[in-house]
Design a protein around this nucleic acid. Structure first.
Length: 258
DNA sequence: GTGCGTGTTAAACT
DNA sequence: CAGTTTAACACGCA
């Protein structure tokens, strides 16, 4: 159940293990979410080297020699797991590389989605150049919903999920319940800065914590979002409330704009 | 046994 | 009609 920083680490660590290795075979165990047939997938990918692994929004892209790209969306419960003598449960798709190493995408809920050659998406990534302050200003101007829902809307900006939205809004000192179009411009700038800070800092933390693995998530660095957390780093009691159908964790340090 | 969940989508609302 | 809310997905975990 990864978010952007986790996916960034998975991409880096998958590259460490599999970059420039030839994909010997790809096996489709659950095909319901795949956009092509297993035969088409094998013809596109087998025998080609994995040239690059990128994170794009909440997806990973496995890029292969020959120009084909396999997108992977892990959804809520998807995981990437090494395939060993004791293979992982609930496999969706499995990748066997020359040299004997293999990994699989798993998901007990069967929601994780592999997509061959995913269509270009014009929505900016949260860490991209295109996601700048003027874009954010334009995006929120039309929106009367809460700022938290806007931040998590993948049609507006790609990559921010429920947990990091809470972390970012606390850092920006803006209430998640604030109306998006009522946030003054200086505070929007702070929000933009907080998005960048929180995500990039988390990537650095996770790089240090997980130098090699792509099958593990660490949530040790969250300071606001989590059932076990009672107080913010500055000692304010954390409140929990459902906003837009998902749990929001926040404190009264965060200013409400309505 | 109970309740909950880091995402997305279609259906059902307003 | 457009925007917003809900249920469903199906299992592991506390």
């Amino acid at each position: 159940m990864p978010e952007l920083p986790d996916l960034e680490i998975f991409a880096i660590n998958l590259e460490k293990q599999f970059k420039n290795k030839t994909l010997e075979s790809v096996k489709v165990i659950v095909s319901k979410k795949l956009n092509v047939t297993e035969t088409e997938l094998r013809e596109a990918l087998e025998g080609h080297k994995l040239t690059e692994v990128l994170r794009v929004g909440k997806t990973l892209q496995l890029r292969f020699g020959g120009g084909n790209i396999l997108g992977l969306h892990l959804m809520l419960h998807g995981r990437l797991m090494p395939v060993t003598e004791d293979p992982p449960k609930h496999q969706i798709i499995q990748f066997q590389f020359a040299g004997g190493n293999a990994f699989a995408l798993t998901d007990f809920q069967k929601q994780a989605t592999p997509t061959l050659n995913p269509p270009e998406n014009r929505v900016p990534d949260a860490l991209s150049q295109e996601f700048n302050i003027s874009y954010l200003k334009r995006a929120v101007a039309k929106k009367q919903t809460t700022i938290k829902q806007v931040m998590m809307d993948q049609k507006i900006v790609r990559g921010i999920g429920n947990a990091y939205a809470d972390e970012i809004l606390w850092k920006a000192r803006i209430s998640p319940k604030s109306a998006a179009n009522k946030i003054p411009e200086p505070r929007l700038k702070e929000l933009h800065q907080a998005i960048d800070d929180v995500l990039r800092t988390e990537i650095i933390n996770l790089t240090r914590a997980l130098p090699d693995v792509y099958d593990t998530e660490v949530r040790d660095f969250l300071v606001i979002h989590g059932a076990g957390i009672k107080e913010s780093p500055t000692g304010h009691k954390i409140k929990v409330e459902t906003i837009g159908g998902r749990k929001a964790y926040y404190t009264d340090e965060q200013e409400l704009f309505v």
